[in-house]
Write a protein that binds this DNA or RNA. Structure first.
Lengths: 124, 124
DNA sequence: ACAATATACATCGTAGTCTTAGGTATATCA
DNA sequence: TGATATACCTAAGACTACGATGTATATTGT
C-alpha cells in the first residue's frame, strides 16, 4: 500500500539488484554470499541485498543467461555455487551502466540538481 | 518473474515516484496531470510517470499528509485537483533528497564510479 | 558436550509498486 | 461527427523486495 512515510532507502533501491550483482561479478567469479557482502562493503553498508532477493535474482540471471554457475565442494565449510559473467552478461552490464547514468541524471534534473549525475568532463 | 533482459530504465525507476512528485510541488501548487508532464519535461523525456502510478501515489501522499488538495472547477475544460505541499511534505522532500544522494552514491560506488554521485564542490 | 556464531545455500508468504488497459467527462478543431 | 487534448480515477496482473524459515558445515567459546 505504498508507505511513503517509510525510510525511502528501501523504496529507492528497487530494481537495482541485477546491475549490482553483475558489477561485482565483473571483477571476477564469486558466490552468492560473497557477492552480497561485497555489495555491502563497496557501498559502505548503504546497500544490503537480502538473501530473499539475492538467490532468486541469481537464478533469473543464470536463465538469461547473463551468468553461469558451477557447484564447488569446499575442503572446509559448506559448498558454494560459483557464478561467472557470460559474454552476454558483460554486454548487459555495459548497457545497464548507461541506463543507470541516464536514470540518475534524469532524477537529479527533476530534483533541481544541475550537476547531472556522473560527469565525464570536469568543468573548469 | 523479474525479466532481467528488459530495458532497465523501467526497472530502475521503481520507488522514485513520490520524491519526483514532491520535488515538482516544491516549486508551487499544481495538479496531477501537470505534475506528470513537468516530470517528463524536466527529465528531457527520460522519466514518465503513468497515470496508474501517479494518482494512487498522490492519494497516499495526501493521506500522509505530505500534500493537501482542493477541487477546482475551471471556467473552461475539466476540473482539476490542485495539490500543495504541507510543512511535513517540505521536510519529507528534504529527507528524501538526502536518501537519494546516499543511494545514488552507493550505487555508483558499487559500479566502480569514484566521482560519488552529486558533487557539491567541483574539483580543480 | 553444548551452545552460539559465521558461512552458504534455498524457498515461501506477504506486501508494496508499476504497467497496461479501461472508464468518465469537458472542450477544441477539422 | 469524430479525433485530439485535457483531466480525473480504478482494476487486474506482473514484478520485486523483505522477512522468516529451513538445511547443513565448521569454528569458537564455556
Amino acid at each position: 500500500m505504498y508507505i511513503v512515510g517509510m525510510n525511502d532507502d528501501q523504496e529507492l533501491k528497487k530494481g537495482s539488484t541485477p546491475i549490482l550483482i553483475l558489477s561485482v561479478l565483473s571483477s571476477g567469479p564469486s558466490h552468492g554470499y560473497a557477492i552480497a557482502r561485497e555489495i555491502q562493503r563497496l557501498s559502505a553498508e548503504a546497500l544490503k541485498v537480502g538473501e530473499g532477493a539475492l538467490y532468486p535474482a541469481l537464478r533469473i540471471l543464470e536463465g538469461a543467461p547473463l551468468v553461469e554457475s558451477t557447484w564447488e565442494i569446499q575442503p572446509s565449510g559448506p559448498s558454494r555455487r560459483i557464478y561467472t559473467l557470460t559474454e552476454a552478461g558483460h554486454a548487459k552490464l555495459a548497457a545497464s551502466r548507461r541506463s543507470w547514468q541516464r536514470f540518475s541524471s534524469a532524477v537529479n534534473a527533476v530534483l533541481g540538481d544541475t550537476s547531472g549525475g556522473t560527469p565525464h568532463v570536469q568543468p573548469a
